[in-house]
């Protein structure tokens, strides 16, 4: 059974003449314990898919189910306990005036957990920070450390699914390597399922076994990681993205100019 199942997801935003279709008939499914990548350029709607699954938008059409339960039939609190999100910018996603302790214990309090103290110190150890970070403010932490706090916050409700929205694009490559390794470890230890959004195909390739390429609100192509790497992509757009990600390629620039 798939852990995430999205069928014919469509979403409009805006009012009157400014109304635009943001997502158009998106379908994807992710097996339990798998990592699935969503790749595309800005404005392609990849983050919006995550926001729909997280319940941040509610007026979409289609069907989203996780762990066999549809969004419509689930209670909101229960849904949040199963699905959590990590955002791109650890400088923007943590409350600047809350200590790490508050940031991590608030979700527990909202969801009525009892042993808050133990859970907070355990999760801090699990993301490689340790208890000494507990009473610090976000501004006292580096970018990588902050992202670890954001991951700890997402994990503290013991979700089954993490929605990762460009979780390393604001970080240096050496820190990115540490965070990607942490994601791999956590997935194994906690049986997590990931839906990872990135514009970086190398990150998607490293983390995911399957992926979908998005453009202007639609899925252009869904393929496995092996297909992508071994020239199995059939859509021209996928191949353009692949070539553009590898290096500065003057020929490709000329081809793009000629094509448009």
């Amino acid at each position: 059974m798939s852990m995430i199942d999205v069928r014919k997801l469509s979403l409009d935003l805006g009012e009157g003449v400014r109304r635009r279709q943001i997502l158009n008939d998106i379908s994807l499914s992710v097996e339990a314990g798998d990592s699935f990548g969503l790749v595309g350029e800005s404005g392609s709607g990849k983050s919006t898919v995550l926001r729909c699954i997280a319940g941040l938008y509610r007026h979409w059409t289609g069907e989203i189910s996780i762990d066999g339960q549809t969004f419509a039939s689930a209670d909101r609190m229960g849904w949040c306990r199963k699905v959590q999100m990590v955002f791109q910018d650890p400088y923007g996603s943590l409350h600047p005036k809350h200590k790490i302790d508050t940031i991590l214990s608030e979700p527990l309090r909202i969801h009525g957990f009892k042993d808050i103290d133990r859970r907070v110190s355990q999760i801090l150890t699990q993301v490689g920070l340790g208890p000494r970070f507990r009473y610090r403010f976000p501004h006292q932490l580096s970018g990588g450390q902050r992202q670890r706090v954001a991951i700890a916050r997402a994990l503290i409700l013991e979700p089954k699914i993490l929605l990762l929205d460009e979780p390393t694009s604001a970080l240096d490559v050496s820190i990115q390597a540490e965070i990607l390794n942490l994601f791999s470890d956590l997935r194994e230890q906690l049986d997590l399922t990931y839906l990872l959004v990135s514009h970086d195909l190398a990150v998607i390739d490293h983390m995911c076994s399957n992926l979908a390429v998005m453009r202007s609100g639609s899925v252009v192509e869904s393929l496995s990681r092996e297909q992508m790497v071994h020239g199995g992509a059939t859509e021209r757009y996928t191949n353009t993205l692949l070539r553009a990600s590898e290096k500065y390629d003057r020929e490709l620039v000329d081809e793009l100019a000629a094509a448009s």
Partner: peptide, 20 residues
């Protein structure tokens, strides 16, 4: 060398990325 090694690359599957 450490920076280059920490970069994920397309088609180059490694279990773990090396960290600095």
């Amino acid at each position: 060398k450490g920076l280059l090694a920490s970069l994920p690359r397309i088609g180059d599957r490694r279990g773990r990325l090396s960290v600095l």
